[in-house]
Amino acid sequence: MLTKRIIPCLDIKNGRTVKGVNFVNLIDAGDPVALAKQYAEKGADELVFLDISATLEGRKTTLEMVLKVAEQVNIPFTVGGGISSVEDVDLLLKSGADKVSINSSAVKRPELINELADKFGSQCVVVAIDAKQIDNQWIVHLAGGSIPTELDLFEWAKEVETRGAGEILFTSMDHDGTKDGFANESLSKLSTTLNIPIIASGGAGTIQHFVDTFQIGKSDAALAASVFHFGEIEIEDLKEALKKNNIEVRI
């Protein structure tokens, strides 16, 4: 059986790992390549690197980092952040990234999803969607959750699938940073209405939250950052607990 995946997410700025709580107050949590290797050895199934560098130099540093990760790490990894063209993706894939994740650029120009799927295949196109609830409706947001769009989460997710995305990374801005559990109700709706894998993101605080997002949220993978970076949850313990709950994991 296909296993559920555990994905540590590393926020990268100018080649260094950072993680924000609710996307502010950045704290340095180490060298990304060393951290990535450690996660691979501990049993992480995949890694996501989110480049939050604002400058061109910062992004070049990230490209060098991608190459180093590809050299040293033997599990798949996705790179996201600031990707807006076929050329950006080509460079990242040529540097050894397995998948790329696009977010704002897909909202601004949805055809980008088709272009990437046609050129590189759906398997490497992850569309990240940040959303929060406004008046009982899940609204897609841009720029780390600060700018609301007109888009409804479920309609946008369907469009993203139709245009050729291979996977959706859904972050609930209402849950992100709270350590209060994933947005399982909307995750479950996404997972049952779409036919591509859904990665849950935002809200991981305890091992039980992961059990819940797989069992209640029907997520295919769960992504978290600080609980892993600061050793609050060890991946080995997490996977043992998931297995005890009859959730298929790679051990």
Binding site: K4, R5, G166, I196, P197, R250
Partner: peptide
């Protein structure tokens, strides 16, 4: 389409 396509992840 009874399964999610693509299959993505670890399997035995």
């Amino acid at each position: 389409d009874e399964v999610k396509v693509p299959q993505m992840g670890w399997n035995k």
